[in-house]
Design a protein around this nucleic acid. Structure first.
Lengths: 206, 206
DNA sequence: TATGTCAGTGAACGCTTGTTCACGCAATTC
DNA sequence: GAATTGCGTGAACAAGCGTTCACTGACATA
């Protein structure tokens, strides 16, 4: 009943996930990840891998899920900062860039697999990004009283800009990251202004 | 002097490039491209590959270069449409989406290698995209009298949105592509409005 | 016409890969 | 205490990989 066995299993499962993460880097992507190497780094025999995952693909999808989860938790944190006052845009962008810096491997995985070669992967990543966008839409509708249509356009544009900038941040040194952050903030302000202007234009027409 | 020999060499070189292109698809990316398979499809022995490229990497960089070339051709097309009058935004987005539809393999390669695992690849793709952005900046400054700073912010945002939408278009059916195109157009209009508003705000401050 | 060059070849190399199998042995269940 | 479950194992497999090597034979050169 103690579950000493189940605990051990979970432990090696985590070891496999961690090993896979460690092997992901700028030079070595998921596509060139090998079952045997992952097993080796996790300290188990190659054959034991199958006790935990059916496939390398299953492991990969797990990584994507974990990455998306981390990302969303982080942004919720950032919204708490917003509630305390301060610029929502600056807070969000800063948080996002910090996430990219601190979770390079995960973000790189998400990016690569978004346009990667496994349909399941692409769908999984797309789903994560859509979650992200949906939360932003809700915020824009609830807090800023945008129409749903305009909020969706705006949120989608914001997410595209931010993820793309995040991708560039992966290769950047800290000075360049700073520049990217400020640039992104300015761009989101432009989008916000444009959305606001569009809302007014629509109202005038009524 | 006829160069019948050099011509033959160029022909098999093209065959190798074409074979590599053919093997690139949604399911099978550059990373999982094999020298032997490429040689097989090109109709030569694996060993002969080395008469044309030192590496698979060298072949890959050639593909990226060719992709960039095609992309620049697209820019020229787009500029012709603009010269004929009509909405700049609509013309550009439509042309871009057509490019993505007609050059799926190339665009997918550019996308993947932009955040891929070879630094040389990333730099090569980044250079192509920067080229793209630079031309847009010049247009915004020359034709629309934006300050260079604001033009750069705007152009960079536009390119990020458009490329990101292009990526989504890869997996989309024609109906979804149409939706994406219209959405992107609306988003670029929001950006344009925002940039315009920002310009006015700056002027007021003076 | 004789000589040299070089794209293309087939065999062979040493490795790594994913996956299977029967098995040991400790945790769990009855 | 006996029976069962299931994680981890090492050996073995066929297949694929990139790369080397000495070689052939058509073209180029002089």
């Amino acid at each position: 009943m103690a579950g000493i066995r189940a605990a051990q299993k979970e432990k090696t499962r985590r070891a496999l996930i961690q090993a896979a993460m460690n092997q992901l880097s700028a030079e070595h992507g998921y596509a060139s990840l090998s079952l045997r190497e992952v097993a080796r780094e996790a300290g188990i025999a190659p054959t034991s891998f199958y006790r935990h995952f059916q496939n390398m693909e299953e492991l990969g999808l797990t990584l994507v899920d974990e990455g998306g989860l981390t990302l969303r938790q982080l942004l919720r944190q950032s919204r708490q900062q917003i509630a305390k006052g301060g610029s929502i845009i600056r807070a969000s962008v800063t948080t996002f860039m910090e996430f990219v810096s601190n979770n390079t491997a995960i973000f790189r995985l998400l990016l690569q697999e978004k346009s990667g070669n496994s349909r399941d992967f692409r769908l999984a990543v797309t789903r994560e990004v859509e979650h992200f966008t949906a939360e932003l839409v809700d915020y824009l509708v609830a807090e800023q009283k945008f129409t749903r249509e305009l909020a969706e356009l705006q949120a989608d544009a914001i997410v595209r800009i931010v993820f793309s900038a995040g991708a560039d941040a992966l290769d950047a040194d800290s000075k360049e990251k700073q520049r990217l952050t400020e640039q992104t903030i300015s761009q989101l302000r432009i989008v916000a202004r444009g959305a606001e202007a569009t809302r007014l234009a629509a109202k005038t027409k009524e």
